[in-house]
Design a protein around this nucleic acid. Structure first.
Length: 298
DNA sequence: TCCCAGGCTGCTT
DNA sequence: AAGCAGCATGGG
């Protein structure tokens, strides 16, 4: 059993530190694999905001070194986000052993994990993701945080940071102001989603208690959210392990390696994914995606 | 300059 | 069910 070392050290300058003991955890790959867009790396240190708290993470030989600026309590909020206590090996064991291509991707991306993100932030970010490159999504999200996000405490000497803006905040921002964040035609989608969430018309917390298909239907009620974005939120925020987002990269991989490059009817593809990748298909998807995207420089 | 990006909507066939 | 234009913006 992987255990977090719960010793919290109070360092100088309003700084709290600990180390989460993990194995099989590739922090950089995980934060850089297109499932999350709000983390910035400087010299091996990743900083971001989780549950309204500024956090800095650094990979160490025995786990993840953590620094925060506010009393962290039991760190469960961070363990939950990082999914650092999930037994990766148990998930990988569910993959069929006769899929050499998948196994190669798993080996290449050793330690890549799925996070458990805040539903609103995840939904909003993926509404912004359509036909955008990951670097551009990050850029838009950065501007949104700077302009509309709540400031969060940072340690002495660390530049100010802000949380991703709440739905209630974005609901009152004009479409023109959103467009000034360079999100183009996605602006009205984000604005409408924020307004529906803020008004309680769609209950993001309740979705987490639904069965997969019902949860999916509920997410599809948002304008600008189709099957792919819904599946991203189901997998990255709600943790439905069988959710399997199919974007252009994954579609390319699937047809290329499992269907000899032929065109495949959508229903046939869904069927294949369910039966071939199994209950943790979402993890397989993330390995295939990241592997394909990093082929050139790995 | 052209093509593409973690797509979706609305319209046609 | 499947195909397609349009949609903003920026990277390579």
């Amino acid at each position: 059993v992987q255990r977090a070392n719960n010793i919290t050290a109070k360092a100088g300058g309003g700084l709290f530190e600990t180390t989460l003991t993990t194995k099989d955890y590739d922090l950089a790959a995980t934060l850089n694999s297109g499932q999350v867009f709000g983390w910035e790396e400087t010299a091996g240190r990743w900083s971001g905001v989780v549950q309204g708290r500024w956090v800095e993470l650094r990979a160490t030989p025995d786990g993840i070194a953590v620094r925060t600026a506010a009393p962290p309590g039991d760190w469960n909020w961070l363990k939950q986000f990082l999914q650092s206590e999930v037994q990766l090996a148990e998930i990988l064991e569910t993959f069929t052993s006769d899929d050499e291509f998948l196994l190669r991707a798993v080996t290449r991306c050793h330690g890549l994990r799925l996070l458990r993100q805040d539903p609103w932030e995840c939904l909003a970010c993926f509404i912004l993701s359509s036909t955008k490159q990951i670097v551009q999504i990050r850029q838009i999200v950065r501007v949104l945080r700077e302009r509309f996000g709540e400031p969060v405490a940072t340690p002495f000497g660390i530049k100010p940071a802000a949380a991703f803006p709440a739905a209630q905040r974005l609901a009152e921002v004009s479409e023109a102001e959103l467009r000034q964040c360079r999100m183009g035609f996605r602006a009205p989608y984000l604005r409408a989603a924020a307004q529906r969430v803020a008004a309680g018309e769609i209950d993001l917390t309740g979705i987490g208690r639904m069965e997969l298909e019902a949860a999916r239907e509920e997410l599809l009620r948002f304008a600008g959210v189709g099957e792919k974005i819904a599946d991203c939120v189901l997998l990255f925020a709600y943790g439905f392990p069988a959710a399997f987002p199919v974007d252009v990269w994954v579609h390319r991989v699937l047809t290329k390696y499992y269907f000899r490059g032929r065109k495949v009817p959508a229903e046939r593809l869904r069927q294949f994914v369910r039966q071939h990748f199994g209950p943790h298909a979402g993890y397989a998807q993330q390995y295939l995606f990241h592997h394909e995207r990093t082929l050139n420089h790995s």
